[in-house]
Simulated assay, not measured.
Amino acid sequence: MSLPLFALFLVVFGFTTGEFVVAGILPDVAADLGVSIPAVGLLTTAYALGMIVGGPLLTVLTARTPRRPLVLGLVAVSVLGNLGSAVAPNHLVLLVARFASGLVVATFFAVAIATAAALAPAGRQASAVAQVTLGLNLGLVLGTPLGTVVGQQLGWRATFVAVAAVTLAAVPLVLRYVPAAPGTSGSVLAELRVLADRDVQLAIALSAVGNVGVVTVFTYIAPLLIEVGGFPAGAVPALLLVYGAGAVVGNVIGGRLADRALLPSIAGLLAALAAVLVVFWLAGGVPAAATVLTFAIGLLAFAMIPGMQTRVVATAAAAPTLAVAVNASGYQFAAAFAGWLGGRVIEGQGTAAIPLVGGLLTVAGLVLALHLVRRDRRAAVTPS
């Protein structure tokens, strides 16, 4: 991994830990604030809504800002948002703080992914993107379990302080290694035109629809493992480590598969993920099976990401940063919906139904991926 990509990777690690660690401390937050598990699940929705709003808006407003100071500004807002989460006196203030933390994340991911793709040699863009998105994986494999342990030992507020500290620690590397690239020289209107492209729209839709099922499962993974899997609360960090280990493996595999056959690999991964989620619904009550399936879910969920991100960059060559930011917002729209939907499922059918719902939602993503495969094949044989 090159040093510029490594610097971006570290910031992604901090941001990802801040986003997903709520899944590990969710029961602790609920108990401390005196609210229900579904209510705390809305913290995921609030963070996601911040990304949905902030991604396109901030990316357009900062389009001409040089990349290095832009990244530093985004990191600063994230640090302040996490510190605000740590001192929130009640559930409402915590929701606002999570929303504020999410505002800058989509724009940062867009800058990081577009930078990675631009620095990569031809035919290796997906692998370069995978190196940056490895921060997502390690945010799960290390950040989320460690943050959960911190929350269990020192209180959930200490978790957000730790996230702010880790993110802040990446600043010197950003200053030293992120390329001093200028912002775009084009007009805002020219940037926005790329979103009217049908291929870009479908690529963004694929990220949203393809991920909503697995995000629903992950948002409520702590109560799922405790109530259905029969694990003690103290085992949740270790199981998040298992999930994250699968994510790391999947990230590497997914980048290589996407370099070889982009859309067919995404379709195959979605089919496998839907099947694994249904199996979890059937066998998740057996601890050994739940452990293996947790690894498999992490692997398949994160194997899709490099290909999905690369598809967006490839279809939006005229304005990749804005398109990737909107794509991140689309993913978070799925996360916002997942936080709400999972709570309704728990209140209705119970926690055990979460994996089945996730599997059915993933099938919708598979249908869209297969449609795009056919669409590309028709375009390849149609005379220009």
Score class of each variant (00 low, 15 high):
349 Q>D: 15
373 V>G: 08
136 L>E: 11
211 N>A: 00
7 A>K: 03
313 V>A: 01
158 A>D: 08
55 G>Q: 10
51 M>I: 13
303 A>R: 01
340 W>P: 11
13 F>G: 12
246 G>L: 01
90 N>W: 09
135 G>N: 03
112 A>R: 09
273 L>E: 15
124 R>H: 15
353 A>S: 08
162 A>F: 04
57 L>I: 15
322 L>M: 13
276 V>N: 05
187 S>M: 10
179 P>Q: 00
187 S>W: 13
118 A>Q: 15
307 G>N: 13
124 R>S: 14
28 D>V: 11
15 F>D: 13
57 L>R: 09
166 V>N: 13
45 T>P: 15
107 T>F: 00
137 N>Q: 13
69 P>E: 04
258 A>R: 05
273 L>T: 11
311 R>W: 04
239 L>P: 06
293 L>R: 04
55 G>C: 09
285 G>L: 07
288 A>Q: 15
205 A>M: 03
261 A>I: 08
20 F>L: 14
229 G>D: 07
36 S>Y: 04
292 V>T: 00
100 A>K: 06
207 S>R: 05
87 V>K: 10
111 V>I: 12
203 A>Y: 05
344 R>V: 13
168 L>N: 13
195 L>K: 10
309 Q>I: 06
376 D>N: 14
63 A>D: 15
212 V>R: 01
281 W>N: 03
57 L>W: 12
182 P>W: 11
276 V>D: 06
157 R>Y: 07
97 A>T: 02
241 L>C: 09
5 L>N: 15
7 A>Q: 04
113 I>A: 11
341 L>S: 04
115 T>V: 09
354 I>K: 01
80 L>M: 07
136 L>K: 06
363 V>R: 12
196 A>W: 14
294 T>F: 00
59 T>S: 14
83 L>M: 03
230 G>S: 11
153 Q>E: 15
21 V>Y: 06
303 A>M: 05
199 D>W: 10
